[in-house]
Design a binder for these strands. Structure first.
Lengths: 344, 344
DNA sequence: GAATTTTGCGCAACCGTTTGCGTAAAATAG
DNA sequence: CTATTTTACGCAAACGGTTGCGCAAAATTC
């Protein structure tokens, strides 16, 4: 490993017997440098393979041209799609992306935030842990002038920048569809109580039932901690009811996979004895024999890339001299029901 | 956005009427600084919330404590698992990870390499594009003393550091299993010719047939460019043969999904009329009704985390003063057949 | 030909931290 | 009480590039 120092501006300066500042300006084709000098500098630069040390520039600029993304779990297609959205947006702005997986662990999330602060990222995008209910660790970023934009899993606060997804639109479409094809007893398998998404689904569920003049029956509202065993317990409770629901809204596609297995095991047929609506729109249903009637798409890519756009707005605004405080950047994307109704 | 400069060493120095060097040393509890001074420095540092500007340090150290990972596509579970492997390894070494998705596009790969070089990453991990057959863009990293370790999709060269997966072990298990349950006519749906993986599968296929005393029949060896239409064409060709194979080795699980659909459409039953062995071990089969007899696991996480380990070895060795050139770091992990034989 | 403008370049500071070397004052030795 | 060592700290350079300012030489004006 030859200790060959990379070529620097000084090296060029030495060879040409000019000053480093002249070289710097020449390389940027600054008008105050003569044409011949500029050309000679470019020539030597090419000869010795000079390339500016971006680290030095970034250091001087007090910028890193790097943003951090904190997401729970890359193995979920939703989040890997989200990461791709961020990456694409970042590439367009010539930014780099460093990632951190919180694995839905609050302490890890805090640690990742610390790390990103240490590395002086120019901004942070976050989709929260299931466990996160305090936000001091993000507030600390503000002190470092590091803007934060949340997406999808956002804090329950008003004073933040975020992009989220509105489940109402998709869920309303879904329940309306169920009612349209004759379902009147529609159950719900919800998630863990402490998740914001859980409360949200419950409220919308009530609202959608009401809009369709259906009664609420607590017996057909169950919940799961999202573990496999618990998923099975939830669906089995519903199908063993005397008057079991003919359709069930399921927390997400992962839970639904277990539900389908349980239903089959019980000798029932999906979309005949019982139908499902779920959330996530995993890219697997087209290959499955038993599918939900619909899955509600929450547009990971769209959310994250829009959030990234917000973040770049904040970053660019902060560096501008006329640094008038930007208003809070907030946007809510409508979810959409993706129809999987099997062809008869 | 208050333009509050972050507290620096100089700020502490000014407050205490000492020099910046004293502060620096005090903060590191250097013995040459008196106890009282050291304590006063620590006190003020805490008061004004001083934290070292890592950017400055990294710049001075000519290190970024960042590695780059170039992978084709995050939406493939294989690569998101691989990325997680890298991230875990990096975290253990206090490194950051920046990502680049090549999307199996050679030009993008080159551009990403350039970008990572610009950002002076300390090292790069790569899983190649399907299109990549020249490697100059990686050689250029050598000039910058940026070590490169390849994993899974590795160049066809000897002078590189890499971790790859040996398909022989898994494939031999698979074909032996097929033969064991009576299959004698085993087809192959292979990938695009220019992929190293394609040639590899073909060679091993021949070898495994030979070891089981089966004849080679070119009629039941087809290939696909991995697009859906082509996948269907390939499987349909096989099942429309007069003497069609009873079992097929399929390039990977994605191709297999299409094959299964085609087989069903043709009125055949998977694992009765025709059986499959595939590669990738996607985390979906446990939920499917039609599954391969087995899928060959290539251990994305294991490969990538080991590759990351190699990379850190190279990085650390390069910075050590006694920089004796490390031998090439190469390792091949055995693949393993994962049995999905449906319970009768 | 003198006065003024333009052209072309260098000096030095700066970003924040680290570190080799030098040195005054204090402590110890003789 | 002097000579030597130790203690505790400061100076300045360095990392690589940028930029405001100043200044000499050349070009222009009258």
């Amino acid at each position: 490993m030859s200790k060959n120092k990379l070529p620097t501006i000084k090296e060029i300066a030495k060879r040409l017997n000019v000053s480093a500042s002249t070289v710097s300006r020449a390389l940027h084709d600054h008008p105050s440098i003569g044409l011949v000098t500029t050309m000679r500098v470019h020539k030597v630069a090419k000869e010795i393979g000079y390339e500016a040390n971006k680290m030095a520039i970034y250091f001087k600029e007090r910028k890193t041209y790097t943003i951090g993304v904190i997401i729970p779990d890359l193995s979920e297609p939703f989040f890997s799609a989200a990461l791709t959205g961020v990456e694409d947006a970042a590439e367009a702005s010539n930014y780099n992306v460093i990632i951190g997986q919180s694995l839905d662990n609050f302490e890890r999330e805090k640690k990742i935030v610390e790390n990103m602060k240490d590395h002086r990222v120019d901004g942070v995008l976050v989709s929260l842990t299931k466990e996160t209910s305090t936000y001091e660790h993000f507030d600390s970023l503000k002190k470092y002038n590091i803007p934060v934009v949340f997406f999808d899993r956002v804090p329950n606060r008003k004073d933040i920048n975020y992009v989220a997804c509105n489940l109402v639109s998709g869920m309303l479409q879904a329940i309306t569809k169920l009612v349209g094809i004759g379902h009147t007893r529609i159950g719900l398998i919800n998630g863990p109580a402490k998740l914001a998404a859980t409360l949200q689904r419950l409220e919308i569920y009530f609202r959608c039932l009401k809009e369709n003049n259906l009664p609420v029956d607590q017996d057909i509202i169950v919940s799961t901690t999202l573990g496999k065993a618990d998923n099975l317990k939830a669906i089995n409770k519903l199908i063993s009811l005397e008057e079991s629901p003919t359709a069930v809204i399921v927390f997400n596609d992962y839970v639904l996979l277990d539900c389908i297995a349980a239903v089959k095991a019980a000798g029932l047929v999906v979309n005949k004895d019982i139908s499902f609506i779920s959330f996530a729109n995993l890219p697997i249903w087209e290959y499955m024999d038993s599918v939900p009637l619909a899955s509600i798409e929450q547009f990971a890519y769209k959310q994250s890339s829009m959030a990234a756009g917000f973040l770049f707005d904040l970053i660019n605004n902060a560096t501008k001299p006329n640094a008038t405080e930007l208003p809070l950047l907030q946007h809510i994307i409508d979810s959409e029901m993706i129809d999987y109704t099997p062809a008869k």
